[in-house]
């Protein structure tokens, strides 16, 4: 217990990742406006990207780039223990592109919903759908 608390304080990236992810989840579930739900979804996605970038980080690590020449003559990080792990970075590069595509499609659907119902609030849309079904 005594060495757990400094460990939890040193890994503050994961706490902030958890806080951001739960903020996004709360916005997706509890917010009433459709654009606010989409912003919450994007916060959720960036929180997961923050988690992956955090697990790749090494204290004192450099970028995996060989300076000046290469072919044995250059200097830079050669051993895998000396540079930051680039595999999660490449995975999250794809995730960023996917997230902006998802946001574009979601906003286009929100515009279509607004043209159909004249509002972006979820309860108003549900009310209109129920009154139309009741007729």
């Amino acid at each position: 217990m005594t060495d757990l608390l400094p460990l939890m304080a040193a890994k503050y990236n994961y706490w902030i990742y958890t806080i951001l992810m739960m903020t996004g989840l709360y916005a997706m579930i509890a917010k009433n406006n459709l654009v606010k739900k989409i912003i919450g979804m994007n916060i959720f996605q960036t929180a997961i990207i923050l988690f992956y970038v955090s697990i790749a980080y090494k204290t004192g690590g450099t970028l995996p780039i060989i300076m000046e020449g290469g072919h044995g003559g250059g200097h830079g990080a050669i051993n895998a223990a000396d540079y930051i792990n680039p595999l999660p970075h490449t995975l999250m590069l794809t995730a960023i592109v996917v997230s902006v595509a998802t946001m574009g499609v979601a906003l286009a659907l929100a515009i279509k919903v607004y043209r159909q119902y004249g509002t972006l609030e979820e309860d108003d849309i549900n009310h209109q759908i129920r009154t139309q079904a009741g007729q």
């Binding site: 654009v35 970038v53 690590g61 930051i84 970075h89 590069l93 960023i96 592109v97 906003l107």
Partner: peptide, 27 residues
């Protein structure tokens, strides 16, 4: 700061640039 420069400049172009334009256009 965490050393992910490729992720950082993609986010600066795509996240802070394009998605803001999408949001403002949708609004």
């Amino acid at each position: 700061i965490m050393g992910a420069v490729d992720v950082a400049f993609t986010e600066a172009a795509v996240g802070a640039g394009v998605s803001t334009i999408f949001c403002v256009a949708a609004v």
